[in-house]
């Protein structure tokens, strides 16, 4: 049986033995490895960049969206349907703009909601089979909206049977779980989401500001599907 005092002596001896060996506690000696000195290129000094204040409807990246196929009989379900929001008093515009069929990128066609996480919700009137959701946040400027999450439910409070059809909140900053979908740059084509025929009466869309400012915007949301019999 090893005494308590003996074990202490052994521990100290072991410590000195190990600590005197190469590679303990510090990086390998200079003989074995040296830090690679990187000569990194410095930034190039350039003059004042272009000042852009006008609208730009051109795409930034990518090609035109390929055709998207939906079941026969699919129709636009969201036109003129009622819209509610977490921000009951939009800063600019009216919630009705979301479903009025106007998709222009000009002033007067979008609704602006306050900063941080905000949602809008469209009531389709009855449960439907959904085949496509098309979103235009704000397309007269190249920008990315953060934490775009689209959910479908039959519960207007989105408590039970909530189905998420799109989520690009990769760091869970909106608090609804991490999403695997990609962020994207807004264009006049809008963002097409495939709900894969799931059923629901209410569509709720979240966002958390954008790369240009902290506000949340919508020009139009279109929901396509078929009425459930």
């Amino acid at each position: 049986m090893i005494k308590k005092s003996d074990s202490l002596v052994i521990t100290i001896l072991l410590f000195f033995l190990v600590s005197s060996s190469p590679g303990f506690g510090v990086q390998d000696t200079a003989q074995e490895k040296v830090e690679l000195e990187l000569k990194l290129p410095k930034p190039m000094f350039v003059g004042t960049p272009r000042n852009i204040r006008s609208a730009n409807l051109e795409r930034i990246t990518g090609k035109r969206r390929p055709p998207f196929y939906v079941p026969k009989g699919t129709e636009l379900l969201s036109l003129d349907r009622p819209v509610t929001s977490s921000d009951t008093e939009p800063v600019i515009g009216d919630l009705g703009f979301l479903t009025d069929g106007e998709k222009s990128g000009e002033e007067g066609y979008y609704v602006e909601l306050g900063p941080s996480v905000q949602w809008v919700q469209i009531d389709l009137g009855r449960s439907c089979s959904l085949n496509a959701v098309l979103i235009w946040h704000y397309h007269s400027q190249a920008r990315v909206y953060r934490d775009v999450i689209v959910q479908v439910a039959d519960d207007p409070d989105f408590i039970t049977d909530v189905q998420t059809i799109y989520n690009n909140d990769h760091d869970n900053s909106a608090g609804l779980g991490i999403g695997k979908d990609k962020e994207y740059i807004e264009t006049n084509e809008g963002r097409l989401i495939d709900p894969r025929g799931i059923n629901g009466r209410y569509i709720r869309l979240y966002s958390r500001g954008n790369t240009s400012n902290e506000m949340n915007h919508y020009v139009e949301v279109e929901v396509y599907g078929t009425l459930n019999k």
């Binding site: 400027q141 190249a142 990315v144 990769h170 954008n210 790369t211 240009s212």
Partner: peptide, 13 residues
Amino acid sequence: YQSEYYGLRPEVL
């Protein structure tokens, strides 16, 4: 890699 977009200036990300 996880990619994220950030605004640099209007129209420039």
